[in-house]
Amino acid sequence: MRKPRIGITPLWDEEKKSIWMLPGYMDSIREAGGIPLILPLHMTEEEFVEVRDDFDGFLFTGGQDISPALYGEKKKACCGPVCEAKDTLETMIFSYCWSHDVPALGICRGLELMNALLGGTLYQDIDEERPFLHAPEHTMSFAYDWTAHFNHILEGTPLYARLGVPMLGVNSLHHQAVKKLSDSLVPMAMSEDGLVEAAYAPEKRFIWAVQWHPEYSYVYDGLDMAIFEYFTEAAADRVDAPVSPSLPPDYTFGSKKLG
């Protein structure tokens, strides 16, 4: 049996006008038994249709803020830079994952993207829109190899079943967060100040997303590595499965939500 192939959405450096990638995204998938492959930032729908069946799962990386247009709001001054090309690419890929039940793992921005596309909303800036006395650290400084705060892992969720712990210390590097969680998602972890830090789609094979950055911490935390292993296992289940029939596009960027 061949190893599962995981498509990874690229990071974008606005200053250098260049895509790039953190080694942790690649190495975690490789160590979990998969083959990581970086996707191009600019890809037409026709090009994606030609290659999408070569992949068994997709990893949605961190990066710029989600465009508020994806969840029906205007961009406020507190919102950071957005990358329209990344929004467009990831909308197309996630639509495919959702309609064809393809395993997907979202990290940080990936959680925010999935929530927005499925009809949820976001805080454009946590401090500005949700001031909280004694809030935990959500935007830590490099290196991201220490615990910024603790998350409550919710019993009865697949994350709890996989990790087997009620609390998890995590790193944190985000100023946006889930405001209203999509009705298509169920929370799996909550921060000390009540923010959704992990969610999944119960009706799908494997659509998970976490707010923290396990691509940094998996090297010293076996619990975070377990997330990549579970994702890769779900992708491996598709390796010898029959290819789903092609479906027509079921999204319009910026105007229609999935779910």
Rank of each mutant, 00 (worst) to 15 (best):
Y123G: 08
T139S: 12
M26E: 10
A77C: 00
I19P: 05
D101N: 15
G63I: 00
G164M: 02
M167N: 10
M26N: 03
L113Q: 07
Q176E: 14
L59G: 07
F142A: 12
L133G: 00
K75E: 11
V49L: 14
P36S: 11
C79P: 04
E192V: 08
T157G: 09
L159F: 07
N171C: 04
P36W: 10
A234R: 04
Q176H: 07
K204P: 01
T252V: 15
Y220W: 10
V243Q: 12
Y160S: 11
S18Y: 08
E129F: 02
L41H: 03
D13R: 13
D250Q: 15
Q124P: 10
P249S: 11
F48T: 09
F132H: 14
L163W: 03
L59Y: 10
V243D: 09
Y216L: 04
A241R: 10
K17E: 12
E14H: 14
G254N: 05
S246F: 13
P36M: 11
T88V: 12
E50F: 02
E47C: 05
R205H: 13
P187G: 06
I153N: 01
A143E: 12
K86V: 07
L118V: 03
D237I: 00
L118N: 01
C83L: 06
E90Y: 06
D53Q: 14
A143K: 14
E233C: 08
K180Q: 15
A77V: 13
Q124Y: 09
E46M: 11
G259S: 07
N171A: 06
M92D: 04
L258K: 06
I29F: 04
F253A: 03
A236D: 04
F150N: 11
D237S: 14
R109D: 00
G63E: 00
P40M: 06
E203Q: 15
K3Y: 09
A198K: 05
I66L: 12
R52K: 15
